[in-house]
Design a protein around this nucleic acid. Structure first.
Lengths: 161, 161
DNA sequence: CGCTGATTCTTTAAGCTTGAAAGAAAGCCG
DNA sequence: CGGCTTTCTTTCAAGCTTAAAGAATCAGCG
């Protein structure tokens, strides 16, 4: 039993540590996301998914295809279809005719969309600044680096069968 | 303009750093959550919210009220009602008569629920172990600590007007 | 040219989620 | 005791989300 117990000390099979770490990460993300969601609704009458979509378009002045939006937002294709349709109704985004490939339809922010997003982005940044305020600057830098490593680690595991 | 520029160097008003940090945290959480969601569906035919609810009950052998479940899972009350109803139909949980307070209804895992959850939890732990495998152990410890600080920081900001 | 397969978007059904409102039950207090 | 507040659960509408299936287009190839 020495082998089993020795391995247990250093590489426990129950993965309790990883599970706790994951739950803590999830708790932080959920807390922040819930708070941002409710503030966006309260102060701007907008849902979080629509804000996220507009944020992607803000970073791409030439517009994005629905597929590109789907990949960047890490949501399904059909999801993006519905979000774009509702943003079209509200006049926040517009479609761009695509002569080269008629399967794709690109989308970009309208003037109204840019203006609306600018106001929300300012508040959004201020909220995050306040939420992170009590985390020391060096810890933030370390967090940024470790999360990059985690992203790489997860991606490697997902890609391998 | 010296004041403004000086302040900009040390406390930029756009909160770009905090926003990037938040987006990276969100990306990690979303990647892991999506992967776990699809594996739970593929291997066990169960949805992530139901797994989460069963995980809470597993940690509370005496059962939990719906309100306690709602707070621990950080979701709305009505959400828990629906999840419990569908788990009741599947025989995974059972209600406990509560003589002291007839407003509350406690819920706990059935035998079938315990057995079903045990199999899923083992796989769940193994998945997380693999996803975190490429993150060095010291970094994990630091991550754990910094996330605790972040949790405190966010909670403090949320509670204050 | 026509065929085949891949890509892209849309649609559909089922389930999840919130926020708000309603109802039931308990506790408090004059 | 009666009224008030709080707590807990449920219901409801609107919107989000996924997975899977379908439709349209493109690209390559015989």
């Amino acid at each position: 039993m020495i082998d089993a117990e020795t391995r247990l000390d250093e590489h426990p099979d129950d993965h309790k540590d990883e599970t706790r770490l994951w739950l803590r990460l999830l708790t932080c993300a959920t807390m922040i996301e819930s708070e941002i969601r409710s503030r966006l609704r309260r102060d701007f009458g907008v849902t979080l998914p629509r804000f996220d979509l507009m944020a992607q378009l803000e970073k791409a002045p030439d517009g994005l295809t629905l597929g590109a939006l789907s990949r960047r937002m890490m949501v399904s294709n059909g999801n993006v279809t519905g979000l774009v349709q509702s943003l079209l109704r509200d006049g926040m985004v517009e479609r761009i005719a695509q002569p080269t490939d008629r399967r794709t339809t690109s989308v970009r922010l309208t003037e109204a969309g840019h203006a609306s997003f600018a106001a929300m982005a300012a508040a959004h940044g201020a909220w995050l600044g306040a939420m992170f305020a009590r985390v020391p600057a060096p810890d933030r830098a370390a967090l940024m680096a470790t999360l990059a490593a985690l992203k790489t680690s997860v991606r490697a595991d997902v890609k391998e069968p």
